[in-house]
Computed example of a mutant assay.
Amino acid sequence: MIGFLLTVGPKEGGIAVQAIQSILRHYHDAKIWVRDDATTDGSYELLKGLADQHPDRIDLARNPQPMGYRGIPVSIFRSYHRIANAPEKLEMLIQLDPDVWLRDGIDELARKKFAEQGPGIVGSYMRSPSQTTRSHSWHRNNMIRDLFPLGWDKATKKFRAGFPFYLPYLSTAMRNGYKPGHHVLGAFYIMSGETLYALEKVGFWDSMPDAGSRIIKEDDPLVSIGAFIVGHKLIELHDEGTPKVWIQVANPLPFSAQEILERNYMAVHPLKYDERALAIRRELAEATAVA
């Protein structure tokens, strides 16, 4: 079985519902896990309405209080722990932000990469979709700061003492080839089932405290450590030449709906909730609708 995970914050309910509907249409046997960040703008109600229509395919959880952008890693780790202990056994888990547009074919792409390179996490790693080299220095520098046992929490501004939760795993990861800060882009990646369950077995998904990391407030580098902890790897998503997906960091997306279709992309990021992005989403939904 293939699994999907979305974490939904304020203003994201509408585009998250579109993403879920696309998954329901294109991935008929998939299970979808959704975590709402205690939203109060109607997003949760939209998600619950859809989940109630598909109780066997959508698992909806809700944070007891808002974690915000800086709390995404905590939400993600809690979700992975939940999924790893679910009765469904997954071949792979596709994590996507609500502003990812998705169509069919991602499972076959990931299956091929896992067959060629072994288990791990497929994502935008060393190469951007435009074929430029991605930098890992910002996350590396944050990790170095995070390893000091005393300092101020980046989100709460409160003083915290103690080593980061991932320190007991770091030496193993580095022996397996991990370089501090190396990561796949958190907006969209595919984790092999072997990696998901191996990390649950060693306690990694249950190791993050409620306050998260003191300095690293992004899920990208924290999840990416996991692949190396269990002897797996990070795998490049963007093929050389013409990539099959386009996952860039931030707006604006340099394509029209027609160009996305002509290039036959399986996934693009970001398409948020601004006027232009919503118009592109409508055109793509009409063009790719299936019975």
Rank of each mutant, 00 (worst) to 15 (best):
Y69F: 15
W205G: 06
H182C: 09
I106Y: 02
W33R: 04
A267R: 00
R134W: 10
Q65L: 14
S124I: 07
Y189E: 00
V122G: 01
Y125C: 11
V74M: 04
A277Q: 02
P129F: 08
K272G: 07
Y273N: 14
R282I: 01
P168S: 07
V122F: 10
V223K: 03
W138S: 14
S192I: 03
D153I: 11
A267K: 00
A161V: 13
V202F: 06
S79K: 01
L24I: 12
I72L: 14
F114V: 05
P164T: 07
I2R: 03
G120K: 02
E218F: 09
R263Y: 10
S137G: 10
S135P: 05
V122S: 05
L90S: 01
P55G: 04
I144Y: 13
P66M: 09
W101Y: 15
I32M: 05
D219I: 02
G120Q: 01
I215Y: 01
I106K: 06
A115I: 02
L5S: 02
G241L: 13
Y265D: 01
I2K: 07
L96K: 00
I190R: 03
M143K: 08
E200G: 11
F77T: 04
A110D: 09
P98S: 13
G203D: 09
P64D: 09
G3M: 08
I72E: 09
L46I: 04
R160A: 12
R134P: 01
L196S: 03
A110C: 12
G9L: 07
T133E: 13
A285Y: 04
Q95G: 05
I229H: 03
A110E: 04
L185G: 12
H182N: 11
E194S: 03
R160F: 13
D99H: 06
L253M: 13
K158W: 12
H81V: 04
S128E: 09
P270R: 01
E275W: 09
T7I: 15
V34Q: 02
D104F: 14
H269A: 14
L253I: 11
V34K: 03
T172P: 05
K272F: 02
Y125R: 04
I225T: 01
A19S: 12
H54F: 15
A173I: 10
Y178G: 00
V230N: 00
A16Q: 07
D210A: 15
N264A: 15
A211P: 03
V100T: 05
L50Q: 04
S192N: 06
H232E: 07
R78T: 09
D56P: 00
S213L: 02
D146Y: 02
I58L: 07
S128T: 11
Q18V: 05
F228Q: 05
S79F: 05
R127F: 10
P64S: 08
E45W: 13
